[in-house]
Amino acid sequence: MKKLSKNNVWMLIAFAVAVILPNTTKSSSVLQIMVVTMMYAFFTTAWNISGGYAGQLGLGNGVYIGIGAYITGILFNELHVSPWFGLLAGGVFAAIISLGMGSFTFKLQGTYYSLATVALLAILRIFLNENRYIMGWDFGGPAGLKTKWLGVSFQNMQFMDKRIYYYIALGFLMISLLACWHTSRSKSGYYFRAIDTNQEAAASLGVNVMQYKLQAQFISALLMGMGGGFYVAFYQFIDTETMFNFELSFQTMLMAVIGGRATVFGPAVAACLLIPFNELLRRYFGTALPGLPMLLYGLILMATIQFMPQGVIPFISEKLERRKAGERARLPINGPEPGAETKGEANTDE
């Protein structure tokens, strides 16, 4: 119980810092970074359920963010649907698309699903570039979709004060962290991780692999689609280039991999470290050295995979565990045979 309350204390401190943080600055650009950080922490935590726990490295999963963003934006512009409802619609729509994609690609291999989402990115980008008007609604084509400014209003999710966006994003992050936390200790979470490590063994224990993969994907897509709705409300502008390029998907995945897939807080922590770093780089070197942020990202990723293949958070917590367990871990707990995968060949001795 002591250990548990210690963790709770850390969580409370982190939460308190997150709440106070936007009040420590008046700079609009610093606030901007804070909002973006929260938003990405939310994206990557949402990705973590299917990509982390269930181990489906969805390379094009950002497509669900784009779908949510476009649906929220178009519903607002054309039908004056509040983004609060728009983002729900966007999330549900994205989740349904993910079910459709999953049901015909999961029968093959995990990679096909991943490739299918990447293909969907390209298809949507081209389709929206070529078709500015769909059912008479203006999606903006290659020029992008700008949401109408109707003045500060909670219902329209339009604010001058960026702190409000920050708190909304923080709220979403909390929801996705809760979803992850709940997943990690529920039956689904155990099944997801089992599927991730050994699909066949999972099936032999009664896990309907297809059903649980779809479930993981559904939750991630739902949350990411909702995040897309927030994205468009915050930026008040989206275009096919930013929503349906590979980078958004890639970053989302990268933060989770670096922070620790299948850990509740790892991806969000990585986002809190990497996004400000990335934004600062972009601000100061962006025009002079446009490739630099991506290059550094690549280096950080390589270093993580080399030295902490499970991600930063599991690496640290394992270290701490080891230190605490100290002597117990050093005792010879195991018998003579070390190799696990080696097969006991036909035994003719005895």
Partner: peptide, 19 residues
């Protein structure tokens, strides 16, 4: 040829069955 869930503990492996 054993097929463990290698990142899960013995208890967690067994829980997957129990679920």
């Amino acid at each position: 040829i054993v097929r463990p869930f290698s990142n899960l503990t013995v208890l967690e492996n067994t829980m997957v069955g129990a679920f």
